[in-house]
C-alpha cells in the first residue's frame, strides 16, 4: 500500500525531472525550437454559424486519437491507436496513470516518455514532448464523447482548467512556445497520423469560436 508521503516523494521525483534536457533544444537554428503562432483577431462580429463551423474543426482535432487518447476517464488508462492496430485500445504494458495522472502510484509516464523538445524520429518509440508526460486532468475526459458533449465541456471553466475564451486561445499559444502536447499532436513523428490541419489553423478556429461566444451544436 502506498502512503501519502511516498506518493508525494514519487510525484516530486517525477516532476523533478521536468525542465532538464531542454536547454540543448533551444539553440540557434535548432529545428526543435518553439513554434511562433499568430493570433489573428477577427474583424467585426463573428456569427454563430461561423462559430459552429470553427467548432467542427476544433472537434475534429480534439477527438482525434493524438489528442483524445490521453483525455480519458477515471479508469486512468491511456489509449493507444495507430495504423497497425485499428481502433483505439488500452495502452499496452498494463499501463495505468493512477489518480495522479502521471503514474506516480506505480510506473511514471516519464519512465519511458521523457521530457524533450527534440523531434520524435523513431517509429514505435515512446513519444516525448516539452512537458512531463501525463494524462489530462480527469475533469477534461472526453475520449469517446460526441461533438456537443465535448463542446459544452471545453467552454465550461469547471472542466477546462478555469479558462475563459482568451484563456483557451492562450493555452494553444503557450503550448506552441514550449512544444507541449497540442504541438506534438500536429507533428507526432514516428509514422503516427497527426491531428488534422495545422497548429495555426487550430488557433484560428479557437479564436473564431470564442469570438462567436463558444456556440455548441444542438443549441
Amino acid at each position: 500500500m502506498m502512503t501519502r508521503s511516498r506518493l508525494a516523494f514519487a510525484i516530486a521525483a517525477i516532476l523533478g525531472l521536468a525542465g532538464a534536457g531542454l536547454a540543448y533544444a533551444h539553440g540557434d537554428g535548432d529545428p526543435s525550437a518553439a513554434i511562433d503562432l499568430v493570433v489573428n483577431s477577427p474583424e467585426g462580429e463573428v456569427g454563430e454559424d461561423e462559430g459552429l463551423a470553427a467548432w467542427e474543426n476544433i472537434y475534429a482535432v480534439v477527438s482525434h486519437p493524438r489528442c483524445s487518447n490521453c483525455h480519458v476517464d477515471d479508469s486512468n488508462t491511456p489509449m493507444w491507436s495507430g495504423p497497425s492496430y485499428g481502433e483505439a485500445r488500452p495502452h499496452g504494458m498494463n499501463i495505468n496513470a493512477g489518480a495522479s495522472r502521471i503514474g506516480a502510484e506505480s510506473l511514471p509516464c516519464g519512465t519511458c516518455h521523457i521530457q524533450s523538445t527534440a523531434p520524435n524520429d523513431h517509429p514505435h518509440a515512446a513519444p516525448h514532448a516539452g512537458l512531463t508526460w501525463m494524462l489530462a486532468p480527469v475533469e477534461f475526459a472526453w475520449f469517446g464523447k460526441d461533438s456537443a458533449d465535448v463542446c459544452r465541456q471545453i467552454r465550461d471553466p469547471e472542466r477546462n482548467g478555469g479558462r475563459d475564451g482568451a484563456g483557451l486561445v492562450e493555452h494553444i499559444v503557450h503550448d506552441a512556445q514550449i512544444k507541449a502536447f497540442i504541438t506534438w499532436g500536429f507533428n507526432p513523428g514516428g509514422g503516427r497520423e497527426p491531428a488534422p490541419g495545422t497548429m495555426q489553423a487550430h488557433l484560428d478556429d479557437m479564436v473564431m469560436w470564442t469570438a462567436a461566444g463558444m456556440p455548441c451544436p444542438g443549441e
Partner: peptide
C-alpha cells in the same frame, strides 16, 4: 532502443527511466 522493453532502466534522481530515451542533456546535473 525505443522504450518497449525496459532492459536499459536506470535511475535519474531516484526515478526509474529508460536510458535509451533519456539523453545525456537530460541526465546532466
Amino acid at each position: 532502443g525505443i522504450a518497449q522493453c525496459g532492459a536499459c532502466t536506470v535511475h535519474l534522481d531516484g526515478q526509474a527511466v529508460r536510458s535509451c530515451q533519456a539523453t545525456v542533456a537530460l541526465a546532466e546535473g
